[in-house]
Nucleic acid binder design. Structure first.
Length: 195
DNA sequence: AGGATGATCGTCT
DNA sequence: GACGATCATCCTC
């Protein structure tokens, strides 16, 4: 069941933390896949590491649109990264979802990824997008309304949330804007750092 | 266990 | 024309 409109904050950092434990569901013609969010990164307003930093462009337009929509971009010519937009319309910001704990449609994820190991299916932004069948066609998709890509209530309360530097960025590298469920084996980077 | 490398292309300079 | 909010593979320790 989709979550209510007011179930999540839209301030970027608060949203990032609140997303941990929520479930992302992808409904496609070949079936449903779903996973529990265990790792995210916040890309806040006026953040030098954010795609929105240089201003609104065709690619980043949805980052400046209403919150809780999908921002999906192609990286390194071959992977997709899935983000959830944040802040009121007009602000360019979002939350990158970096890892999921697979919950539903495991066999379909395995087929899409070409691997069997459950732990590796959604461990990393490019991997989870592939496992859920997310590509640029999902860009701008609302995540609350009935939609092929939507957020559901947590199935289990999150454990303690840790924070760290963001992964793979060169600008604003010291900001602690990566959040993850401590100790989860499905987290992609360091997973036992700060409280 | 950890570092280097190649794949591959849309986007912005 | 250079460069990624990455990943899989290959190498060395």
């Amino acid at each position: 069941m989709p979550i209510g409109v007011d179930a999540l904050p839209i301030e970027t950092r608060a949203l990032a933390r609140a997303l941990i434990g929520h479930v992302l569901v992808s409904d496609r013609v070949d079936g449903r896949t779903a996973g529990r969010i265990v790792e995210v990164e916040a890309y806040v307003p006026r953040d030098a590491a954010s795609h929105a930093y240089a201003g609104k462009t065709a690619r980043t337009a949805v980052m400046f649109g209403p919150p809780l929509h999908a921002y999906v971009y192609l990286i390194y010519g071959m992977y997709h990264c899935f983000n959830i937009t944040s802040e009121p319309e007009g602000e360019g910001a979002g939350v990158l979802v970096r890892a999921l704990e697979p919950l539903e449609g495991i066999a379909l994820m395995q087929a899409r990824r070409g691997i069997a190991a459950e732990r590796e299916l959604c461990r990393g932004p490019g991997r989870l997008a592939a496992a859920l069948g997310i590509d640029r066609s999902a860009d701008g998709c609302p995540l609350l309304a009935p939609s092929p890509l939507w957020l559901a209530q947590p199935v289990r309360a999150p454990g303690r949330i840790g924070s760290s530097r963001r992964i793979g960025i060169s600008r604003a590298p010291r900001r602690l804007l990566r959040f993850y469920e401590r100790g989860s084996p499905f987290v992609s980077g360091p997973r036992n750092l700060s409280p």
